[in-house]
Amino acid sequence: MVLLEPDPFLSELHKMYDRNKAGTVWVTMKRSNMKPRKSKKPETAKAEYVCLIRANDGKRHVSTTVSPTQYAKFSQSMVIIMKGAMADTLKKKEKKRDK
């Protein structure tokens, strides 16, 4: 598992979707404190929750963490990448069921 900075993660994610046009890609998000094994300052540990994001295509794993200050920009970029990858292959038939 490679822990990347948010920006390299996004480009890896993009590549992963590109490589797996016929395969499967999983993206998992969870809340985590990423706590180090031995913490010398237990008081500060409280506030250090971040959003952990992992991407996996069955062969490679990449992951990143997004802090409360970064998530807005990151979430936008990630949604754009995902939509770009998904839009072409999903069916266009409109069922008029949204809204």
Partner: peptide
């Protein structure tokens, strides 16, 4: 589960809500 392009908007919506929840949601 979906295979409809129109549901992309919904996927976008739920993903966008989970980001703030998970990055700075209540402890």
């Amino acid at each position: 589960k979906t295979d409809q392009q129109t549901d992309l908007r919904q996927i976008e919506r739920i993903t966008a809500i989970f980001f703030p929840l998970m990055a700075c949601g209540e402890l």
